[in-house]
């Protein structure tokens, strides 16, 4: 089912946290709400599930206007960051609770619980209490409980934040699989860009209560709308380099780069160069000294202090003989240079 927020505004007392936000999540789509801490992701989520009242704007599930429908009647499944399982109930009772509230017959409930337990693969853990389950298992129970009512929309609030790194990887795939299998419309709230990029069809990147860009992960990575977006996505992160646009791009006091095609402006700008677009494989042109090397197993990160000012980061396959203090002369992939105004707007 399609979900549509129109001119959504939320204020807590005198503080307006979100102003006139528009967001449409297509039917069966998985959308990430991504942004730094405090940008209003949870607030948006709470407004969609009905826990918070909207100060202004409207919310539609399909054609149905649910703006003032109480949470209980909205048909939204939510998975909370700490799972919020009911500690005094077994996994089975937890999952079946929404149906029990709807007064479904016992046999029906048991059948449905079994179906969902199979979907999230915890069929043999049903008679355990939450305290006797691992984090990943609790997560699956929470997911099953959120899905059992066959909700119109599934909301996930930082569902992976409490898991260790390995389990996080596994659950990432699991959640995506379950979402695909059921074809449910889902919104994932996260501040982890890797999670957003790997799990979702589209990403809404938020900052200070506004969506600054809404796009597919690939396009957002390759074609960011602003310096903020470029800086937020990518790991290791992009490097920014102040430059002066004239005939060529003057970097620091002594070095220059060729002007990328299509760049119109003159004067002070900021260049964004991703680590994979800087290095010996891109030829030569920028001189500097290696000031930092961080091995990461398959690859290693290298920070280069450019002569005349500025630092660029490169990512190289392990085995390249680069040592701390080496002098290097590396090139930049010209077509991939991103240019921003000093205010951070993409040029």
């Amino acid at each position: 089912m399609e979900l549509r927020l129109e001119k959504f505004t939320k204020a807590f007392g005198p503080v307006t946290v979100i102003q006139d936000m528009d967001l449409t999540v297509g039917s069966g789509e998985m959308m990430a709400l991504l942004g730094p801490s405090g940008c209003g992701k949870s607030t948006t989520l709470f407004a969609i599930c009905g826990i918070h009242k909207m100060t202004g704007g409207r919310l539609y599930f399909g054609d149905r206007d649910v703006t003032s429908v109480p949470a209980q009647q909205r048909s939204v499944g939510v998975v909370f960051q700490n799972y919020a399982l009911y500690p005094h109930m077994t996994a089975e009772q937890n999952i079946g609770f929404p149906l029990k509230v709807m007064r479904q017959p016992k046999a029906e409930i048991a059948k449905e619980v079994q179906r969902l337990a199979d979907l999230v693969q915890i069929g043999d853990l049903l008679d355990r209490r939450p305290a006797q389950l691992s984090g990943g298992q609790q997560q699956r129970v929470a997911l099953a409980r959120a899905m059992i009512r066959k909700p119109d929309v599934l909301l996930l609030d930082e569902p992976l934040a409490n898991l260790d790194a390995k389990l996080r990887l596994e659950m990432r795939a699991e959640i995506r699989r379950i979402q695909r299998e059921t074809g449910i419309t889902a919104i994932l709230v996260t501040h982890d860009q890797v999670e957003a990029m790997s799990m979702c069809d589209r990403i809404a990147l938020m900052r200070d209560g506004k969506i600054v860009q809404l796009d597919t992960p690939e396009r957002m990575y390759a074609d960011p709308a602003s310096q903020f977006v470029a800086g937020f996505l990518g790991n290791p992160p992009i490097s920014f380099l102040p430059a002066r646009a004239g005939e060529q791009l003057a970097i620091g006091q002594s070095q220059v780069l060729p002007r990328p095609a299509g760049l119109e402006v003159q004067g002070d700008i900021v260049l964004g160069i991703r680590p994979e677009h800087f290095g010996p494989q891109h030829g030569q042109g920028l001189h500097g000294e290696v000031i930092f090397v961080e091995p990461q197993g398959r690859e290693e990160l290298v920070d280069v202090q450019l002569d005349g000012g500025g630092i660029l980061r490169a990512i190289l396959p392990t085995g390249d003989p680069v040592k701390l203090g080496d002098r290097v002369n590396w090139g930049v992939s010209g077509g991939n240079i991103l240019a921003f105004s000093t205010e951070g707007v993409r040029l």
């Binding site: 807590f12 009905g50 826990i51 918070h52 009242k53 109480p70 949470a71």
Partner: peptide, 9 residues
């Protein structure tokens, strides 16, 4: 103490 209840219904 006065922080508002988080479910606003």
């Amino acid at each position: 103490l006065l922080s508002k209840p988080r479910i606003e219904q």
